[in-house]
Amino acid sequence: MSLYRNSAWFLKGVTEFTRKAFLAASKRFVEKDLEVSLAGRSFMITGANSGIGKASAMAIAKRGGTIHMVCRNKDKAEEARADIVKETGNKEVYVHILDLSETKKVWEFAESFKRKYKTLNVLINNAGSIMSQRDVNAEGLEKSFATNVLGVYILTKSLIPLLEKSPDPRVITVSSGGMLVQKLRTGNLQSERGRYDGTMVYAQHKRQQVVMTEQLAKTHTNIHFSVMHPGWVDTPAVANAMPDFHQSMKESLRTPEQGADTVVWLAVSEAAATNPSGRFYQDRKMVSTHLPLAWTHSSSLEEQKLMSLLEDLAKTFQPH
C-alpha cells in the first residue's frame, strides 16, 4: 500500500506540484482577487523570516496590511523585517520572537499578544520543522510534534477570542502534499515507537493539521479556516531537510512567491471567504485531502480523539 501511495503521490507531484504546474494553474487565476487594500487589517505569520512566510509577509505588506512576524531567530527576523519595509514602504511590520517548539512559551506569547493588541484579522500558521532524528524539548515533548502540531493548536486556540472580535477573521495553515501518503494515527503522536523517519513524521503532522483545520472549522463557525499545499517550493527548509530531493528537483521547484500565492489569496481575497470553511487548497482551488484508493481516510471518532489529545496536552502546559 505505501508503495502505491508513494508512487501515486510522486506522479501527482510531478504533474501538479512543480513550477511548470503553477504557471499552468495560474492561467485561470482571477487577477482582481488580489487587488485589495489591506490598510487597517492585521496579519500574524509564523516563520516569516524566510521562504513562504517571508514571501507572504511581503505580498501582504505591499497591500498595506499590518504584519506581525513570529520568528525564532531575532537576527534573521530583523533582517527580513528590514527587507520587507524597504521593498514595500510599509513600516507596520513588527517582530515577535518565539520558538514554537517551546510549548509553555507559545501560551505565554499568545496571552501577552491578546493583552497588547485589540485586533487580529488573520493568523497564518506557516512555521514548520522536519527533524533528521528524534529530539525532545525541555518539556519532554518530541520537538517536531511540538512545533508542527501542538504549537499550531495552542497558538490558534489561544488567539481565537481575538480573531472572533475582529472583522472577517481567517486562519490559514500551510500544510504539505506529503500528508497525502499518511493516514491519521493518534496512537503514536510523538513518534516514540518504530524507526524515526523525519520526512514521514512531518507528513503525519501535516495530515494532523488538515484534520485539525476541519475540526476547528466545525466548532468556530464565525472564523474562516483553511489549509493549503504550496507545491514543491525552493526554500531553505527544503534544502536543509531534504537535500537529495532538493538537488534532483531544483530546476522544477517553485519560487517562494509561487508557493505563497495561495496563502495570500486565502488570507486576503473575497473569493476565498465565499468558499466553505475547513477545506484544503492547492493553487487557489479546493482539492481532495486523499489520493484515490489510498485508504487514508480516518473515522470521525479518530479525528475527535486527536482533538481531545491535543486539548489535554495543551492544558498541561497552560500557565495558570
Rank of each mutant, 00 (worst) to 15 (best):
M1C: 10
R5G: 12
W9G: 00
L11F: 13
K12Q: 12
G13W: 05
G13I: 01
V14I: 13
V14Y: 10
T18Q: 05
R19F: 06
R19A: 15
A21V: 06
A21Q: 03
F22T: 14
L23S: 14
S26Q: 15
S26W: 06
F29R: 07
E35T: 11
E35G: 09
V36Q: 13
L38Y: 07
A39S: 13
A39H: 10
A39P: 00
G40A: 08
S42Q: 03
F43H: 11
I45D: 07
I45P: 06
I45V: 15
N49Q: 10
S50N: 12
I52F: 04
I60V: 14
G65Y: 07
G65V: 03
T66A: 12
T66L: 08
V70K: 00
V70A: 03
C71M: 07
K74Q: 13
A77W: 03
E78V: 08
A80W: 01
E87Y: 00
T88R: 01
T88L: 04
G89Q: 07
N90E: 04
K91L: 08
E92H: 10
E92K: 12
Y94M: 10
L98V: 02
D99W: 04
T103I: 15
V106A: 02
W107I: 01
F109I: 09
A110Y: 00
F113H: 08
R115F: 07
K116Q: 15
Y117Q: 14
Y117G: 06
K118F: 08
T119H: 12
L120Y: 09
N126F: 06
N126A: 09
N126H: 07
I130N: 11
M131E: 15
N137T: 15
N148Q: 11
N148R: 05
V149Q: 00
V149H: 02
G151D: 03
L155I: 05
S158I: 02
L163T: 09
K165Y: 06
K165P: 04
P169M: 01
R170I: 04
R170K: 11
V171H: 04
V174F: 00
G178E: 06
G178D: 06
M179V: 00
L180V: 04
Q182C: 14
G187R: 05
G194D: 05
R195M: 12
Y196L: 06
D197A: 11
D197E: 12
T199V: 13
V201N: 05
Q204Y: 02
H205L: 05
K206T: 03
Q208W: 00
V210G: 02
V211F: 13
T219P: 00
T219K: 13
N222K: 15
H224S: 13
S226C: 10
S226K: 02
S226I: 00
V227Y: 07
D234N: 13
V238F: 12
P243A: 06
F245T: 12
Q247L: 11
Q247K: 14
A260Q: 09
D261S: 14
T262L: 11
W265M: 09
A271D: 08
A273P: 01
P276I: 08
G278F: 10
D283A: 13
M286G: 00
S288E: 15
L291S: 07
L291T: 02
L293F: 15
L293D: 08
H297V: 10
S300T: 11
Q304I: 02
Q304A: 12
L309T: 02
L310T: 00
E311G: 06
D312F: 01
K315N: 07
F317Y: 15
P319D: 01
